[in-house]
Design a protein around this nucleic acid. Structure first.
Lengths: 77, 77
DNA sequence: CTTCACTGTCAAGACCTCTTTACGTCGAAG
DNA sequence: CTTCGACGTAAAGAGGTCTTGACAGTGAAG
């Protein structure tokens, strides 16, 4: 019983994905709302995602990576 | 209200990811149980994943991609 | 025929993703 | 000082992920 239940979360190390997403978003010049709209989710979702300690679905991750002109492995790997 | 709620799922087209995972797993020569153990989840999770219509967390996707010597974008993109 | 590995189905339960609404702060204008 | 955009927090609710355990079908091997 790894996590006992619930979505698979980040391994040991920290959850740096959120910070990477935030930096990439700012680099692209998008507001949280703009990114949210671009990937089709609520602003809350983006906020939570950047806050870390959050495991989005692969599909959301793929969309975000796309909107940020990056790759899933680069942001969450 | 895109999906109204719940994890972001695949867009329009079919959910071919499951089939890709299955083919890659067999190509590598792993049983569902072996893959499950390798990525640290239950066999049920692998079964459901190959069945399609399922949106794993990015982290699980990354582990599966790793175990199958592939990439997230290649399997779920 | 019995055994065993592999695959699949069903189901209850714990924890989580994502939504919507509402409210609070801060800095940059006007 | 008021307004507005961008960010943050809180909280309730629908629906999903992942777990465990039990049970069943298939094909290969003894």
């Amino acid at each position: 019983m790894p996590g006992t239940s619930g979505p698979v979360r980040p391994d040991a190390a920290a959850d740096l994905a959120g910070e990477r997403v935030r930096q990439r978003r700012k680099a692209i010049g998008l507001s949280q709302q703009a990114l949210a709209t671009a990937v089709g989710v609520s602003r809350q979702t983006i906020i939570t995602m950047e806050q870390g300690n959050y495991a989005p679905s692969v599909y959301l991750a793929l969309r975000v990576a796309g909107a940020l002109e990056s790759e899933v492995e680069a942001l969450w790997g």
